[in-house]
Structure formats: structure tokens, C-alpha cells
Amino acid sequence: MSCVQGFVIPVATGKRDAYLAMAQMAAPLFLEYGASRVVECWGDDVPHGTLTDFFRAVAAEEGETIVFSWIVWPDHDTAKAAEARMMEDERMKPPEDMPFDGKRLIYAGFQEIYDGGQGGPFGYIDGFLAPVPIASKEAYLDHARTMTAIVAENGCTRGTENWAEDIAEGKVTDFRRAVQLEPGEAVVFSWLEWPDKATRNAGMGKMMEDPRVHALDMPFDGKRMTYGGFVPILDTAN
């Protein structure tokens, strides 16, 4: 299974083009270092939650939009080796006028544990962060398989689940705080891929009315799950 580096970033809404330009410059370098895919998704339908949400996850300020992004690597060792190369590569030097506050960006390394669906190009995603008891990993996988099969009936083309293996502890923000992680839990970084927003809206609506969904036992605390809808703005696979 692949290694996934997941990111959640607070970007000044008015600096979308500057952020995209920076991402377009960096993506080919990640591929040069050995990554197989780089994806950047711009916040579109990101709700505010009662306990957790993407805005709290990065201490977002007024006038900022959430970016949900990931880099896929063939394995953990390749990802780690790339980090060392980045530190020495002048081409990776950040611009003086950064379009986001790097101190509030959160990132971590994850191991892919499930990949279901036909995949291919997509025009919309739902991104999720979930706190899952380590002892319930297999139950969570069963839940993910069932849910992916249900949303696939309603137009979703792919679902993927990624289990935290390397979470950096941040001074201001990090993935642990994002889901109020408790002892004995791991963070899962996951997403669903859809052809477009209209298909997603219709598909999610049907899913919420599906009795099979309501009959499922939740192997994690859904009240602390963080989620939102995003539009891809960069995908090196397309």
C-alpha cells in the first residue's frame, strides 16, 4: 500500500491564484523526488462543527479558505528521503510573500489501508479526518468498505482510507488537536471522489436516506469527525 502525506492548509481567499502558482511550481519537484501524485483541493462546502471542523483544525481566520491536499508516495522510505532532499533544494525555497501561514498548516504521514472504486478523473471530493480506536481498526475497515460500496451506487468513483503513522506535534495546530484525539486512538485521513458537485450532492442525499447506513455501527466517535467538500484545483494525474 502507498504512503500518503496529508495536508490541511488555511489559505487567504484572495491569494488563491498565488497559492495555485506555488503548488504548480512545487508539484513537478515532488514527482522528481519520487511521488506518484500530488492533489490540491480548494474548500467549497466546509461546515462549522460543534466540537471539531476544518476551520478549528488550522485555527483559520476570517478571510481564509481551507485547502485539503495530499501527496502519494510508493512507500514511507521514499517519502522520508524526499523530505531530506527538499531541505537542500533551492527550488523548494518558499516565496517571500507566502499565501498562507505555515505555522498553522497541519500535515502528517499516513499508510493507505483501503482503496475502493474504479478511480479515474474526479471533479469534487469529500475530505474527512476521523479519530479511530486502534483496537477497532478492522471494524473501521469493514465500515469503510460498506460505506464505499453504498456511495458507489450513487455516483462516487473512489474512496480511500489512510491510517496515521507519522504525526508531527505542532506548536499551534496538528492532526491530533484537529480531532481531539484521545489515548488509544489513531487519526484517519480519507476522501471520497465524485465526478462533479451535482453528483456528489445527489449521492450524499441518497446515502443519508439509505436505511443500510443508519443500521451501521460507528467504530469511532462521529461527533469528532471533521469533514467538508472540496474542488480540485491541481491534480498531477490529470
Rank of each mutant, 00 (worst) to 15 (best):
V4R: 07
Q5G: 11
G6A: 06
A12F: 15
A12T: 15
A12Q: 15
T13H: 02
T13Q: 07
G14E: 11
K15D: 13
Y19P: 13
A21N: 12
Q24R: 12
A27Q: 03
L29S: 11
L29E: 03
L29Q: 12
L29N: 03
F30A: 01
L31V: 02
A35Y: 06
A35F: 07
S36F: 01
R37G: 09
V38P: 00
V39S: 05
W42T: 09
G43C: 01
G43E: 07
D44N: 10
P47Q: 04
L51W: 07
T52G: 02
D53A: 04
D53N: 06
F54M: 10
A60M: 09
E62C: 04
G63V: 02
G63N: 00
E64R: 09
T65W: 09
S69W: 01
S69D: 11
I71M: 06
W73G: 04
P74Y: 03
H76I: 10
H76E: 06
H76R: 08
D77Q: 13
D77G: 13
T78R: 09
A81F: 09
A82H: 02
A84I: 08
R85T: 08
M87H: 08
D89T: 03
D89C: 05
R91E: 05
K93R: 14
P95M: 09
E96S: 13
E96D: 14
D97A: 11
M98S: 13
P99I: 07
F100L: 06
D101H: 05
D101N: 12
G102H: 06
K103G: 14
K103V: 15
R104C: 13
I106K: 13
I106W: 04
I106E: 11
Y107G: 12
F110Q: 14
D115M: 05
Q118R: 10
Q118I: 14
G119M: 01
G120L: 04
G120Q: 05
P121S: 10
G123K: 06
I125K: 08
G127E: 01
F128P: 02
L129F: 02
L129P: 01
A130I: 03
A130C: 06
P131Q: 13
P131F: 05
V132L: 01
V132E: 02
V132I: 08
A135E: 08
K137T: 06
K137R: 06
K137V: 00
K137H: 09
E138Y: 01
E138I: 08
R145V: 02
T146W: 01
T146I: 04
T146G: 00
A149R: 01
V151D: 00
N154G: 03
G155M: 07
C156F: 02
N162I: 03
A164V: 11
D166K: 14
I167W: 09
K171V: 15
V172N: 04
T173M: 12
R176F: 12
A178H: 13
L181K: 14
E185W: 10
V187E: 10
V188W: 10
F189C: 05
W191Q: 11
L192M: 15
K197N: 00
T199C: 03
N201S: 14
N201G: 10
M204S: 00
M204D: 01
G205M: 04
K206P: 02
D210T: 06
D210N: 07
P211E: 00
A215N: 09
L216F: 11
L216M: 00
L216K: 01
M218D: 02
M218N: 13
G222T: 10
T226P: 08
Y227P: 11
Y227M: 03
G228F: 08
V231R: 15
T236S: 08
N238G: 13
